[in-house]
């Protein structure tokens, strides 16, 4: 069997499986009144209840990020003092610090979204103090994370004076990219392509989940519309960039 046939069969199998799963779930829901919505709601309610704790746990991630930054800063100081062997280690430590900080931001916004979804419904007055503490933690981590990222980037710029941009400026990504050389731009291109493929797969999964959830719960069409909107933005940005590159003089 040639490669194309294998791909076609795999594609058809995925479509049939998705259709089958959708049919079984829909039939199950309508014919037997399986309370999938209640189960899902219970799961989400539980997440809302523990969200203040999850927010506080973000402090642990911040501690990890700060420790990588401090180690990176010390190693960078040794490199700048003349120990050339330390350069790569400093790059690695500061790179890890940036990664951890970015992951913390994603985590915090996720937890924040879960927590605010419970305002006025799942969270009662008993939860008032923990929620207020969590909100304060969220703000501290958000501002602290921005300052930490700024400090990390400044350290990276000390190691690599050709790098431009200020994290707190909205033009940071463009300025940083423009100050990269050919190898770094190639690396960013490679990483962006991998990211495009990963998010494309994730979006397809998210659309299926959003459609499934809108069938089972009274959440409405917003999740599916939102995910499809992100899909459209991603695809348009990709095709526009590809066209621009092709027409580049």
């Amino acid at each position: 069997m040639n490669k194309e046939k294998k791909i076609l069969i795999r594609f058809i199998a995925v479509v049939v499986l998705a259709l089958g799963a959708g049919f079984i779930a829909g039939y199950n829901s309508m014919a037997f009144e399986a309370d999938i919505a209640a189960q899902l709601t219970y799961l989400l309610d539980s997440l809302v209840k523990i969200s203040p704790l999850m927010m506080v746990a973000g402090c642990g991630i911040m501690v990890v990020a700060v420790s990588f930054y401090i180690k990176g800063r010390n190693t960078a100081a040794a490199a700048l003092a003349g120990d050339e062997e330390k350069y790569e280690k400093a790059d690695e430590l500061l790179g890890t610090a940036v990664t951890v900080t970015n992951r913390l931001t994603i985590y915090m916004f996720g937890v924040f979204g879960i927590m605010v979804s419970g305002f006025g419904t799942k969270l009662s007055m008993e939860d008032f103090i923990p929620v207020m503490i969590s909100m304060a933690v969220f703000l501290v981590l958000l501002i602290g994370g921005s300052f930490l990222q700024n400090a990390i980037i400044k350290q990276v710029q000390k190691l690599n004076p050709e790098k431009k941009g200020n994290v707190l400026d909205s033009k940071f990504h463009r300025e940083w990219f423009d100050s990269c050389d050919e190898a770094e731009k190639a690396q960013i291109g490679h990483a962006a392509y991998k990211s495009y493929r990963a998010t494309s797969n994730a979006i397809v999964g998210a659309v299926l989940i959003a459609v499934f959830v809108s069938m089972m719960t009274p959440v409405g069409p917003l999740p599916a519309v939102l995910v499809c909107g992100i899909w459209a933005v991603q695809f348009s940005a990709y095709t526009k960039a590809a066209k621009e590159w092709k027409n580049k003089k």
Binding site: E84, Y87, L159, C180, D181, E182, A183, E184
Partner: peptide, 30 residues
């Protein structure tokens, strides 16, 4: 050093290091 060579040719220290290690093939221009 790598940093100085990088500045002279418009590349970063990391890129010079990658080229030296054989992990990156530079463009003809570079």
């Amino acid at each position: 050093n790598q940093q100085q060579l990088g500045s002279m040719v418009g590349a970063s220290r990391q890129t010079i290091s990658l080229i030296e290690r054989g992990d990156y093939s530079p463009s003809v221009t570079l």
